[in-house]
Each structure stands twice: as structure tokens, then as C-alpha cells.
């Protein structure tokens, strides 16, 4: 097996959400910490797509930001080609590695500077890295990038407001591709788009992956989208991965009760008329998560062990599951 391109080991990110010092002194309120990401491991092979899926507040976007370095991790390490990015203190070295990863954001309206022409937006990484010497070379590279994402080179003269949501997301992708990255972190790249436009963007991303051998970390809440794009999927719940499996395996044989229940919650487009029993309850507050397995208050299989002991990710037939019930083999098989 080859060395994975990206490897996260026990990464964590805590946010201090304590009340101000005065309130703590006068009212005696305590420090409060949100464990947005709490000990997550994953690996991404070169040319593959790993997706992280989960409901709001599960920490998936925080991981995206940790990986590209927009947040400093509280603990753990992130390795890129075997080099630990968190321990790197050589700025030049770090900038070089960081330049090989890029990010695509969710909101194509907020992630493009409205006062810049599209050609300047796309050329920013090129200028920053001083990839070309002459202006003509930059212009021709921008034109090439714009045509790669299905826009015309002449569109570079326009401003972002002249484009629709889907076209803006294409501009974001062109900008992300400008520095010839190998690794793209995509944080909900299509959730602000209409379905017909989403299909265009997903197809484009797949084409680009094939053409340039890109590696993706794909963040989404939409299981159907995730099923379509990924090779491997990590299902997240309250800052932890509860199941990490190959796409086909996860959808045909979900092991963790939360994965089963997420799959069951997808609206049924085939209209088989099967009756769904939506699981009651909601994601608990991450400030004060339940003890033991954080999913136990909603889990139909929870017992005393689940309430007290936090399950670790364990290998079960090639997939990794964090569940005492799966380990003890006491879950009902899926129907």
C-alpha cells in the first residue's frame, strides 16, 4: 500500500465559549469549552475522495478548516505526504506544502471579493506564488483555467455579481485550481446551489479529479451527494467519527446505529412506500455532551456500558466503527 497523501491522527479543536472574566468572577460561572472536533483519525489516499458527513454542529466544517490551516488544532497531527503540518516551524517549507492544498467554500456569494474582476480573483494565487513573470502569461493561464471550469476566457473581465450561483462556484473552483494543487478541501460546495446546477458542479469536480489526479476531502450533509462523489465516507456525530467505511459498504451495510438512522432519514425518491420510523430527539448541545457514547440518548440499542464508556473506533471487517453494540454483536441486523 502506498503512503496516504493526507493523514490525520487524533486531531482535536476546542473552542473556549466561557462567559467574560467579570461574569465568571461575580456570578461564579465556570469556564466552558466546546469540543468541536475531539480526536478524529482518517487517511486519504492519493486520487481518492474522502467525505465527511453529519448534521449541523458535528464538527465536519471545523475539520476542513483544520486541514487547510485556517484553525490551529488543539491536539493531534495532520500529515501531508508524511510531513506533520502542525509541527512544522519553517515558514517557507509550510507555505510550499500549503500551496499544494486549496479550499472551495460553501457560499459562492461570500467567498468572492465583489470589487475584484474575475480575472484578478483567479490570478491571486498565481501572483502570490509568483508562478509567471509576465502579465501576458498570467492572463493566458487565467483564460485556460476559466475554460477548464466551463466559463469563457472573456468572462475574466466581469465582476462576480454578473454571474449566477453555479457560475460563481465555477470561479471558486478555477481559483482553487490556479496554484496547481493536488489536494482540494471542499466544504459543502454545492449546498447553496439548485439541483440542476449542483449536478453540473459535481460532474465538473469529477472530471477535474480524473484529469488532474486530484485528491478531495469533501464535506457535506447530503448523503446522496456523498454517495455519488466519494470513495470512502466518515460519518460524524458530535465531534467524532462514528463510522468510517468504503462508500458501497456504508450504504449496503451500515453498522453504526447513527449511520443506519441517517440513511433511513433520506427521503425516498424511488417511492417504494416503505414506512419510516424517524428516530426521535435531536443532536445534543456540544457544550454539555452526554456521557459515554454521545449518541446513547437517541440510540435504541444503548445499555449501561454505552452510558458510561466512550467507544473507540475499531476495525470490523474492513470498516471502522465506534460502537459498543457492534463490538458485542448485539445490534439487530438491518432489514
Amino acid at each position: 500500500m502506498t503512503e496516504p497523501l493526507v493523514k490525520a491522527k487524533g486531531i482535536a479543536r476546542y473552542f473556549d465559549v466561557s462567559p467574560p472574566l467579570l461574569n465568571r468572577l461575580i456570578e461564579g460561572s465556570k469556564r466552558q469549552v466546546v469540543k468541536a472536533v475531539d480526536g478524529v483519525d482518517f487517511e486519504i489516499e492519493r486520487g481518492q475522495t474522502l467525505s465527511l458527513v453529519g448534521e449541523s454542529g458535528c464538527g465536519k466544517s471545523t475539520i476542513a478548516r483544520l486541514v487547510v490551516g485556517l484553525y490551529e488544532p488543539t491536539g493531534g497531527s495532520i500529515e501531508f505526504e508524511g510531513v506533520d503540518l502542525t509541527a512544522l516551524d519553517n515558514r517557507k517549507e509550510e507555505a510550499k506544502l500549503r500551496g499544494r492544498m486549496q479550499m472551495i467554500f460553501q457560499d459562492p456569494y461570500a467567498s468572492l471579493n465583489p470589487r475584484w474582476r474575475v480575472q484578478d480573483i483567479v490570478a491571486e494565487p498565481i501572483r502570490h506564488k509568483k508562478m509567471f513573470d509576465t502579465r501576458a502569461e498570467v492572463t493566458s493561464r487565467v483564460g485556460e483555467l476559466l475554460s477548464q471550469v466551463g466559463l469563457s476566457p472573456a468572462d475574466g473581465e466581469k465582476y462576480p455579481h454578473e454571474f449566477s450561483g453555479g457560475q460563481r462556484q465555477r470561479i471558486s473552483i478555477a481559483r482553487a485550481l490556479a496554484s496547481n494543487p493536488e489536494f482540494l478541501v471542499c466544504d459543502e460546495p454545492t449546498s447553496a446551489l439548485d439541483v440542476s446546477v449542483q449536478a453540473q458542479i459535481l460532474n465538473l469536480m469529477k472530471d477535474l479529479q480524473r484529469k488532474f489526479g486530484l485528491t478531495y476531502l469533501f464535506i457535506s450533509h447530503d448523503l446522496a451527494v456523498v454517495d455519488h462523489v466519494s470513495d470512502r465516507i466518515g460519518v460524524m456525530y458530535l465531534g467524532r467519527i462514528c463510522e468510517l467505511a468504503d462508500t458501497r459498504e456504508l450504504f449496503s451495510n451500515p453498522r453504526h446505529p447513527y449511520s443506519r438512522f441517517l440513511l433511513d432519514a433520506i427521503p425516498d425518491l424511488d417511492m417504494t412506500g416503505k414506512q419510516r420510523i424517524p428516530v426521535a430527539g435531536e443532536v445534543p448541545s456540544p457544550i454539555n455532551p452526554p456521557s459515554g457514547c454521545t449518541f446513547h440518548p437517541r440510540c435504541p440499542f444503548a445499555n449501561d456500558r454505552c452510558k458510561s464508556e466512550q467507544p473507540e473506533l475499531r476495525d470490523v471487517d474492513g470498516t471502522q466503527v465506534a460502537c459498543h453494540g457492534v463490538e458485542e454483536n448485539r445490534l439487530e441486523p438491518t432489514g
Binding site: 439541483v195 460532474n203 469529477k206
Partner: peptide, 22 residues
């Protein structure tokens, strides 16, 4: 086209049907 462009769980397709333009 709209129905074809919706990714569906368990349907193995390499590319989604896409309606060009907006």
C-alpha cells in the same frame, strides 16, 4: 432532466444527467 440531476443513494452512475445553463 431535473430528476436525472438529483443524486440518488444506491444508484451507481458515473455522471449525473445535467441540464446545461441555468
Amino acid at each position: 432532466g431535473l430528476m436525472g440531476s438529483i443524486p440518488k443513494v444506491g444508484h451507481e452512475v458515473e455522471r449525473l444527467t445535467q441540464i446545461d445553463g441555468s
